[in-house]
Each structure stands twice: as structure tokens, then as C-alpha cells.
Amino acid sequence: MPKQELDSEELFNLALSIVGLVLRDGPMQVKELSEHFGFSEKTIVKAVKTIANSEDIGRFETHFYVDEELLDEGEVDFSAGRSALSEPPVLSKRQTTSLAAGLDFLAALPQFSQNSALAQVREIIGSGTEPITDLGLNEDQQRLEPLRSAILNKQQIVAQYVNQLGQKSSRAIDPLRIDFIGRRHYLRGWCHLKQELRSFRLDRIIDIEVTDQEITKQGSSATIPEEVFGALSTELTVEITASSEASEIFWNFPSFDLKKDANGSTTGKIQVGNLQALGRHVSRYGGEVVVLAPQSAREAVSEFAKLAMTGYDGPGDED
């Protein structure tokens, strides 16, 4: 995936990495390096030129000779002049920490829990192979396996799905990708009923049937946006305030106009699909999140919590 322009430290980092790779494996095509490192061909050429322009002007000596003619033809080759640099340095602590935390996160997901390659990498990158407590998403595992094979084989599925309001429906879906966002899995796919790309929460899919029909043209040509939240068709803006500990609620919605006060509380606006779903999102924080406006949203939350309390009103040992 080509990325935006690199800053000078990143370009330096890329140059070191190209040196290590080419000295190890021999000449390579710019195109090949571009695909491997995930940067544009232009960026690769820029990094190679960084290597070329490394003359020691005090001694009139060159560290690397880059074959410029070959580079113009799209090939990268260089020979070490007086350079003692033959391999890129090992990772910095910060690089290691960030990758290790990412790997830890993967290890907590059910689809990777038995992955031996992950255990090997985690041993080297420093987070150890000790199993960490999982996300308690074992139920998702049963849904992940058929979905994974359906996506790889490009097969349509029929899912029994319960939406946010508890309404059950049967959906024909072209399954495309599985995202794990925050703490939940989502299936992203082309919904035949709605004729658009939709996200389906895995824990709300109660049954999956993998059909032998291939996915549709619309499905295979659809581009899934990287955005975590799609545009909601019926959006409502709600103003809320959350204590420091509950401020993560803002990560779960498109949010804006955020302001933090001296106590660490955050006030801002979120966009929600419907009021019934808002009740549960707010109630989970046990009063640490307060809806300020509109009044209808405040009432919806209050209704949800009152209904939830009925389960705790009785003596507990009632027959």
C-alpha cells in the first residue's frame, strides 16, 4: 500500500533497510522493492539516491557506488566502497515496543491464539510467548472459521443477523474482510438486501450458511473504506460529558467539538444511529457518562437503565 511522503528519519530508515537487503540478496528491481517495502517507486528511488549521495568529503571517498544508469532503467544495484555498513541496525527500543504491543494485541484475538508463527515472532520481538489472557471472544471463533474460508474462496453467505434494535433478519452477503476494532469483530461485506457495503458485528450473527454461489460483481469490485465508522444514514447528534475513565466512549462514535476540563472530564458531540442503541452505550458507564442534549436522548438513556434495573429489584431468590 503506497503511503504518503516520508520524513527524513523515515527515509534514512528506508535507505538503511534497502542497503541491508540488496547487499544480502543482490540487485533488485525498483518495482520489486516498492511492493516489498510498501512505498511508491518514486520513494524507493529517492531512498537509493540517499545511499548514493554519501560521500566522505574529508577523505574524498565514497561509501557506496550506486549504478545510476541501471537505476534509471528501474534496477537497484550498488557495491560497497569503503563502507563497513553491511546490515541495517537492529530495531530501536521504541520500534520494538510498538511492534511488540501490536503483536500482543494480535495474540489476544481468537483467530491468532493458536498461531505458532506468531508465538515465534513474539519470542524475538520481545513480548514473550507466554499466552496472555484472551479477549473472551471464544464465541467469535466459531463464526470466524466459516467466514475466513468463505472470504478466501469468494463464496456468498447467508447470515441470520440481529441488528442494534434486536430485530432479526436473514441477509445474503458477499463477505470481504474481517475487522477487529477496539474490542469487537466486524464482518465487512456487500449486503444484497441493502445493495451497499455494510459492517456486521460478529457477535450479532447468530447463524452462518456458506453457499456455493460465487460473490457478485458489486461485491468483488467494492473498495472497503479504511474508515472505522461508515456514514450513517440516519444520524443524530448528541452532546455528552464523560469522566476521565469513561472518555473512551468518544472513540466508539464519530465525535467532534471535544473539550477537556481541569478534572479530566471530556465534553463533546457524538453521532449516533438511533436512540435505543445510545441507551446501552451510555448506561454501561454507570453514570460516568451523562447525556446533556437533546432531551429525547436523555429520556432514552433513563428508560434503558430503568428497564435494566427491573432484573435487580426482586429479592433474588424469588420463585
Binding site: R24, P88, V90, R94, S98, V228
Partner: peptide, 21 residues
């Protein structure tokens, strides 16, 4: 996903990719 340690993680990945295609 472009937050916090994203830059370090990506530069670390680039470094690791020098180990082979």
C-alpha cells in the same frame, strides 16, 4: 492505524523487511 506508535511500528517493520523478500 496512524495513531501514537504508528510511526515507530512502521519504521520497525521497514527495518525488518531488509531480512528478505
Amino acid at each position: 492505524n496512524n495513531q501514537l506508535l504508528s510511526k515507530s511500528a512502521h519504521s520497525g517493520l521497514t527495518r525488518l523487511k531488509s531480512l528478505g523478500v
